[in-house]
Structures are given as structure tokens and as C-alpha cells.
């Protein structure tokens, strides 16, 4: 399959990108690494009239240490994080190393993953657990959206047609923080069948646990997280009950697998 015809432009800065998107009346798509949009174009599932290639905009590629947080530009690739572009943040490198295959990681971006909003993707889940904040650039300037509220449904986000992800702010976990990230993939590099991410940060009095790879955005398992923070563990029944509430309709095998993912994320922490 080859894409239907489209126009292509490569803006120099965010302003130019936003202008192009606005001018296309919803018929434009921003493209960065193209690792999800590319196949969708080829399958003709996505048929934008215009592709706005934001991958060469320097300001979107910055990684900054802001003291109590890291700021990751939307066009930072998974490979950059895998290769420790952020010294000291082992968690992000750990996650990045497990995104798809290296070839995908070389081009795929953090912002692209968030904007594409595949519920099985790594970053929407992990950034939700890390209590990250997404900075969105739009016609009226920038706005900030919590990562756990950014995806509203599978493949759907709060982004308007004329907005793009600009960066993500990831709070640095405190000393003594522990985390776990487990995903179950049938084969290396495939999207997971089940996933869970946990952050226990006593210094910041935070315990955040999310289940991913559902038919909806990553779901918070707050009660389970509290139990783990207080007692160091949570029962399979408690996890199953929480999942049944947040993601009803799972069959016995699917539920079992997701319970396992949560248990193993907890075990890792």
C-alpha cells in the first residue's frame, strides 16, 4: 500500500508549524518520527491533505534539567533517552530501551507517542505514573495538561487540530523513590498485551500506579498504590477488583494477564 497524495511542508519554528496547521482547517497532520503515522498513511487509514514535518524544529528537540524536573522536547527520540541523554534518569532510559525496536526508536519521538495516543504505548503510561505535565503549543500560546489527563480515549487526546505537543515536564523522583515498569509482549518489540507502571516516592508522599494496554487510556489504581505504599504489597484479588472496575469486559485470560503485569511492576519496585 502506498499513501494517497498529500502536500508536505517543513516549518522552521513552532509558530510556522501552528500557522500551517491552522490554515489547513483540520486537514493537516503534524509528523515527527512517523513511526505510527507512516504505516497509517501507507494503509490509507490516515489521509491528511498536508503533512507538517516538525522534526527539524530545534526548540522541540531540547532536553533540559530544570532542577526539580526534566523537560523533554516533543521531538526527542526514544533512542536519545535510551542512550542516556538525561544522566541520572535511569527510569526514562529503562523505558526507552523497551520501546519497539531500535530502528523505531531512532526516529520515533516522545511527543509523537503522546499525540498518537495508542493505549498500549509506553510513554502515555509511564508519564502518567511519573505525574508528568505536557506542554501544548497552540494559537493562544502554551497550555499545560497533566499527562494522566492528556489521552481522553484510545487514539484521542486533548489536542486541538491546530495544537502540537511542545514538551513534557517530568518531576524528578525524590531520594528513596522506587519504581516498577512491566509490560508483557508476545514478542520483542511488539505492543504489549498488558502493562503497568508504578512510582513510590515517600519523599514527595506519592504513590502512583497505572495499568496500560487497555482499550482506553492508562487507568490509575490508586487504592492498590496506597496499599503498596503502606504495606509493601497488594493482593491479586484487590488488583483484579480494581481492574474490573476500571476496565470492565475483560475475559478471564486477559484479566489474569493484567493482574500479573501489575503484580510484576509492584515486585520490581
Amino acid at each position: 500500500m502506498k499513501p494517497a497524495a498529500f502536500d508536505y511542508m517543513r516549518p522552521r519554528d513552532v509558530g510556522e508549524a501552528l500557522k500551517a496547521l491552522r490554515g489547513a482547517n483540520g486537514e493537516a497532520k503534524p509528523i515527527a518520527g512517523g513511526q505510527s503515522l507512516g504505516p497509517m498513511l501507507n494503509l490509507r487509514l490516515a489521509r491528511p491533505k498536508l503533512l507538517v514535518d516538525v522534526s527539524r524544529i530545534d526548540s522541540l528537540k531540547e532536553i533540559k534539567d530544570e532542577g526539580d524536573a526534566w523537560r523533554i522536547g516533543a521531538c526527542v527520540t526514544h533512542a536519545q533517552l535510551e542512550d542516556k541523554a538525561l544522566p541520572g534518569c535511569e527510569l526514562l532510559a529503562h523505558v526507552a530501551r523497551r520501546v519497539a525496536y531500535r530502528a523505531v526508536r531512532n526516529r520515533g519521538t516522545v511527543g509523537g507517542s503522546l499525540a498518537h495516543a495508542d493505549p498500549a504505548a509506553d510513554w502515555p503510561l509511564v508519564l502518567a505514573a511519573l505525574d508528568a505535565v505536557v506542554r501544548v503549543a497552540g494559537p493562544a500560546g502554551s497550555r499545560e495538561v497533566r499527562a494522566d489527563a492528556f489521552m481522553t480515549a484510545a487514539f484521542t487526546t486533548v489536542l486541538a487540530d491546530d495544537e502540537i505537543v511542545e514538551s513534557v515536564r517530568v518531576p524528578k523522583p525524590g531520594a528513596g523513590a522506587r519504581w516498577g515498569y512491566y509490560k508483557f509482549c508476545r514478542k520483542t518489540g511488539e505492543f504489549p498485551e498488558a502493562a503497568a507502571a508504578l512510582l513510590l516516592d515517600p519523599e514527595r508522599r506519592t504513590a502512583r500506579l497505572f495499568a496500560g494496554a487497555l482499550d482506553r487510556p492508562p487507568q490509575p489504581l490508586d487504592g492498590v498504590a496506597r496499599a503498596v505504599a503502606q504495606e509493601g504489597t497488594a493482593s491479586a484479588d484487590m488488583i483484579a477488583a480494581a481492574l474490573a472496575r476500571l476496565a470492565p469486559g475483560l475475559g478471564p485470560a486477559a484479566r489474569k494477564l493484567r493482574v500479573t503485569a501489575v503484580q510484576r511492576a509492584i515486585l520490581q519496585s
Binding site: F184, R186, E193, G251, P252, A253, A254, K256, L257
Partner: peptide, 11 residues
């Protein structure tokens, strides 16, 4: 032998 099939059989 998918994981789901195997889990179902075990359950």
C-alpha cells in the same frame, strides 16, 4: 499456543 489460550486452559 498464544498466551491467552494457555492462560484460558490453565484457568
Amino acid at each position: 499456543l498464544t498466551p491467552e489460550k494457555l492462560l484460558d486452559a490453565i484457568e
